[in-house]
Nucleic acid binder design. Structure first.
Lengths: 132, 132
DNA sequence: ATGAAGGTTCTAGCCGCTATAGGGTCAAGC
DNA sequence: GCTTGACCCTATAGCGGCTAGAACCTTCAT
């Protein structure tokens, strides 16, 4: 017999805020199986698993749109795996591109930080560098 | 004699969109020196320099709030340089922290990408890994 | 029956823009 | 002087992924 839990219990079980769960619902990612007469959302283990899935995927930096696609694919055992691969692959490319940008930024900020030994803005090489 | 330019000319000169310049104005970063009778914004070299400053600072990933602080400091020759340093330093720390996160993400995504040789979702290790 | 804890919807805000609508202004050519 | 077309104006809404708040309703233990 499956137990039904409220949004607060689901939130606790998945370390996700209740508002966020409702937001995911509005984005079409996860819905309650039913509601109480008073309108409280009720969930089962299936939704808990789904939320854990979402959480993991979000930790990989995937957009909610990508997560939604993955959930759709996961629901269909016969779906071709290629689409899953390409979502992951594209994310990897985005991450690598962002890494490059950030490494460049780090170098630049590090250089800037080194170069200022002044007391006042008048002699500050950082301000000078930004003003060129 | 200083020449006055319109927002479009300023936009071209600084490679910033006119809408963005107006947005910066609403955020208190840069204002026109005056307006035409018809209400057109007019700028001088000073504003052009200010926009170039903003652009450079934004390329370092600084928030508009930080840029605003830097502009304020840059305006005062006698301001102590320490505040400038700390804005840069904190940004460097943020960048380094983000770099760590992204490197972790890259490893994880790379691992995921390697591990799936399946045809369908039923055997897909990626989906499995996300579902645990 | 009551009160606390938790639930509901709706709206607005965050950042840094971008897009759209519906208008007004400017300078040049006729 | 008039028209044209490029440019400008304000105001509003949207993006993503939440978060916060108001005003109200439900549930459950006592």
């Amino acid at each position: 017999m499956e137990s039904r839990i409220t949004i607060g219990q689901l939130a606790k079980a998945t370390d996700t805020k209740a508002v966020t769960i409702r937001y995911y619902e509005s984005a079409g990612l996860v819905s309650p199986v039913t509601r109480t007469e008073g309108g409280y959302r009720l969930y089962t283990d299936r939704e808990r698993d789904r939320l854990i899935f979402i959480k993991r995927a979000r930790l990989l930096g995937l957009s909610l749109e990508d997560v939604k696609s993955l959930l759709g694919l996961a629901d269909d055992e016969n779906a071709p795996c290629g689409q899953v691969d390409s979502i992951i692959h594209e994310q990897l490319e985005r991450v690598r591109s962002r890494l490059k940008d950030l490494q460049q930024l780090e170098r630049e900020l590090d250089r800037l930080e080194q170069c200022c030994q002044a007391d006042t803005v008048a002699d500050c090489k950082i301000i000078e560098s930004l003003s060129q």
